[in-house]
């Protein structure tokens, strides 16, 4: 009896410890976020720093984003046609593809791919810089690592994400166009005019808002995980995994919250 009780207490203690740990991490992440914002002036005075990081986050993610977008668009068109033709409205396929991409898939999949491609790279890079004492070295040279290393990467990520999301949606629509018009034979005019009649400009701006928020979340998570990683090979690899998991969950969660606000 006492044994079971002590096991329950041990279990509860474990849960409490876990929760406490997560809350601590949340606080530490928020702290890093605010520090990043306050130390951002330096990298705005030297935009070259941001441009350089945009190359490594944005341009390096370009290929995976474009290829995925093309396939997603094509699949959407195929699947959409399958269902829509049953109701005799296969020319609405453009609407389906465009709305799905602009409202949801564009920003969300871009963010997920970004977390997988650029986010993990960022975490690993920062984690290794920490493990090899590069951040300490910077500090000892009277250079603040947050303003020199963290902030440029943060802004590069935040700026890259909306650009990539726009590209994703547009290329997706083109992929859908290819399948719908060239392969299935939907009328070109109907495809575009139906799309234009039903996609509002608000949808496009909402997409930008979403991808900006995702950009902040994904980049900050990646940076925090790297900055917080234990300075060992194992620590860095764990942090990289966590970046993907936490980014994916936050993107999907945030997407739900944002969508429910935008629907009002």
């Amino acid at each position: 009896m006492a044994n079971i009780l002590s096991q329950i207490i041990r279990g509860l203690r474990k849960v409490g410890h876990r929760v406490g740990d997560q809350i601590w991490r949340l606080g530490a992440g928020a702290r890093l976020f605010f520090l990043t914002l306050t130390y951002s002036t330096e990298c705005f005075r030297r935009p070259r720093l941001i441009v350089r990081e945009m190359y490594f986050t944005g341009v390096m993610s370009l290929i995976i984003i474009l290829v995925s977008a093309f396939f997603v668009g094509m699949v959407l068109a195929l699947q959409g046609y399958n269902t829509l033709q049953k109701y005799g409205s296969s020319e609405s396929i453009g609407v389906l593809v465009a709305l799905a991409l602009v409202r949801e898939l564009g920003p969300v999949i871009t963010a997920l791919l970004f977390a997988g491609r650029a986010g993990t790279a960022m975490t690993a890079e920062i984690g290794l810089m920490k493990a090899t004492e590069q951040l300490s070295a910077m500090e000892m040279m009277a250079v603040n690592p947050i303003s020199r290393v963290i902030a440029p990467r943060f802004w590069a990520g935040v700026l890259s994400m909306p650009l990539l999301a726009c590209l994703f949606s547009m290329v997706g629509v083109l992929g859908g166009h290819l399948v719908a018009v060239a392969q299935i034979g939907v009328d070109v005019g109907a495809f575009w005019s139906q799309m234009q009649a039903n996609v509002e400009f608000v949808d496009v701006t909402n997409m930008l808002i979403k991808s900006l928020v995702f950009g902040v979340a994904c980049t900050m998570i990646a940076l925090f995980e790297g900055y917080d990683a234990p300075p060992t090979a194992e620590g860095v690899s764990h942090a990289t995994t966590r970046t993907v998991v936490i980014s994916a969950l936050s993107v999907l969660g945030l997407d739900f919250i944002l969508t429910s606000f935008m629907m009002v």
Binding site: L128, M129, T132, E133, Q134, S136, A137, M140
Partner: peptide, 10 residues
């Protein structure tokens, strides 16, 4: 400061 493994920026 010279760090143990150099800590060069890779």
């Amino acid at each position: 400061m010279l760090f143990q493994h150099g800590a060069l920026f890779t």
